[in-house]
Lab assay of single mutants.
Amino acid sequence: STAGKIFRAMYDYMAADADEVSFKDGDAIINVQAIDEGWMYGTVQRTGRTGMLPANYVEAI
């Protein structure tokens, strides 16, 4: 389960779609929910934006 875990971005990511979020390497991602194998839903702490993000760009900390 991803509940209550904080994730950290390992790479920069530029949102490719309106429902995705952009983030930079080192950003903390909070309130994360796993959607499926490849995608998560969460909030980028630095920007306050919430949306979909690729699971392979982040790691649990």
Rank of each mutant, 00 (worst) to 15 (best):
Ala16Gln: 12
Gly26Ala: 05
Leu53Glu: 04
Lys24Arg: 12
Tyr41His: 11
Val58Thr: 00
Asp27Trp: 00
Asp19Lys: 14
Met40Trp: 09
Val58Gln: 02
Arg49Phe: 14
Ser1Cys: 06
Gly26Trp: 01
Ile61Cys: 08
Gly51Ala: 03
Ser1Phe: 12
Lys24Thr: 07
Asp17Val: 04
Ala3Trp: 07
Met14Gly: 05
Ala28Val: 15
Leu53Asp: 01
Ala34Asp: 12
Gly51Ser: 00
Leu53Phe: 09
Ala18Thr: 15
Gln45Arg: 11
Ile61Thr: 13
Lys24Ala: 10
Asn56Met: 09
Ile35Met: 14
Gly38Tyr: 14
Met40Gln: 03
Gly26Gln: 02
Thr47Trp: 00
Gln33Val: 11
Val44Tyr: 00
Tyr57Ser: 10
Phe7Thr: 06
Met52Gly: 03
Phe7His: 04
Glu37Gly: 08
Asp12Arg: 01
Asn31Pro: 06
Asp17His: 06
Val44Asp: 03
Met52Glu: 04
Tyr41Thr: 09
Thr47Cys: 05
Gly4Leu: 07
Val58Met: 08
Val58Asp: 07
Gln33Trp: 07
Glu59Gln: 09
Gly4Trp: 01
Gly26Leu: 04
Gln33Glu: 13
Val32Tyr: 02
Tyr13Cys: 02
Asp12Ser: 14
Ala34His: 14
Gln33Cys: 07
Glu37Ile: 11
Gly51Trp: 03
Met10Ile: 11
Arg46Trp: 03
Met10Asn: 09
Ala15Thr: 01
Gly38Met: 11
Met52Asn: 03
Glu20Ser: 10
Asp25Leu: 15
Ala15Cys: 06
Gln33Pro: 01
Tyr11Thr: 13
Met14Ala: 14
Thr50Glu: 10
Gly42Ala: 03
Thr47Val: 04
Gly51Thr: 01
Leu53Pro: 06
Leu53Ser: 02
Ser1Glu: 12
Gly42Ile: 02
Met14His: 12
Asn56Ala: 14
Asp12Met: 01
Gly4Pro: 10
Ala15Tyr: 09
Arg46Ala: 04
Val44Phe: 03
Gly4His: 07
Ile6Gly: 07
Ala3Gln: 15
Ile29Thr: 03
Tyr41Cys: 08
Ala3Gly: 13
Asp12Val: 00
Gly26Cys: 00
Asp12Trp: 00
Ile61Val: 15
Ala60Arg: 09
Gly4Glu: 10
Gln45Lys: 12
Ile30Ala: 09
Val32Met: 05
Gly42Val: 01
Thr47Ile: 01
Val21Gly: 04
Tyr11Glu: 07
Phe7Leu: 06
Gly48Pro: 00
Phe7Glu: 04
Ile6Ala: 09
Ile29Lys: 03
Ala15Glu: 01
Leu53Lys: 02
Tyr41Trp: 13
Glu20Lys: 11
Thr47Ser: 06
Gln45Phe: 05
Tyr11Gly: 14
Lys5Trp: 11
Thr50Ile: 05
Val32Leu: 04
Gly4Met: 09
Asp25Gln: 15
Ala55Lys: 01
Ala18Asn: 12
Ile6Tyr: 04
Thr50His: 11
Gly48Ser: 02
Arg46Glu: 05
Asp25Ile: 09
Lys24Leu: 11
Asn56Lys: 12
Met52Ser: 02
Tyr11Val: 10
Pro54Cys: 01
Gly51Leu: 01
Asn31Trp: 04
Thr43Gly: 05
Phe23Trp: 08
Asp25Phe: 07
Ile6Cys: 13
Tyr57Lys: 09
Ile29Asn: 06
Ala16Asn: 06
Tyr41Arg: 13
Ile30Gln: 09
Thr47Met: 05
Ala18Asp: 15
Ala9Arg: 00
Lys5Gly: 13
Gln45His: 09
Glu37His: 14
Ser22Ile: 05
Ala60Asn: 06
Tyr41Leu: 13
Ala9Ile: 02
Lys5Met: 15
Trp39Ser: 09
Ile35Thr: 09
Met10Cys: 04
Ala28Phe: 15
Ala34Lys: 13
Arg49Pro: 02
Ala34Asn: 13
Glu20Gln: 14
Asp17Cys: 06
Ala16His: 10
Gly48Met: 00
Asp36Trp: 04
Gly4Thr: 08
Ile61Ser: 12
Tyr13Lys: 04
Ala28Ser: 11
Lys5Ile: 12
Ala60Ser: 08
Glu37Gln: 13
Ala60Pro: 15
Ala28Cys: 13
Met52Leu: 15
Thr43Gln: 07
Ala15Ile: 00
Glu20Arg: 01
Gln45Glu: 14
Val44Pro: 05
Val44Thr: 00
Asp19Gln: 14
Ser22Leu: 01
Glu20Gly: 08
Thr43Leu: 04
Lys24Asn: 11
Pro54Gln: 01
Tyr11Trp: 10
Ala16Thr: 13
Leu53Ile: 15
Asn31Ser: 10
Arg49Cys: 10
Ser1Met: 11
Asn31Arg: 06
Ile61Gln: 14
Met52Pro: 02
Trp39Leu: 08
Gln33Lys: 15
Ile61Pro: 09
Glu20Leu: 00
Arg49Ala: 14
Arg46Lys: 08
Ala15Lys: 00
Val21Ser: 03
Asn31Ala: 07
Ile35Asn: 04
Glu20Asn: 04
Ala60Met: 12
Met40Val: 12
Asp27Lys: 06
Asp12Ala: 11
Lys24Pro: 03
Tyr11Lys: 15
Gly48Ala: 08
Lys5Gln: 12
Asn31Glu: 08
Ala9Leu: 00
Asn56Tyr: 01
Phe7Gln: 03
Asp36Pro: 06
Met10Phe: 00
Asn56Gln: 10
Arg49Thr: 11
Ser22Phe: 02
Lys24Cys: 15
Gln33Ser: 14
Asp36Glu: 10
Gly38Gln: 15
Met10Arg: 13
Tyr57Trp: 07
Leu53Gly: 02
Ala34Pro: 12
Trp39Cys: 08
Asn56Thr: 13
Asn56Pro: 08
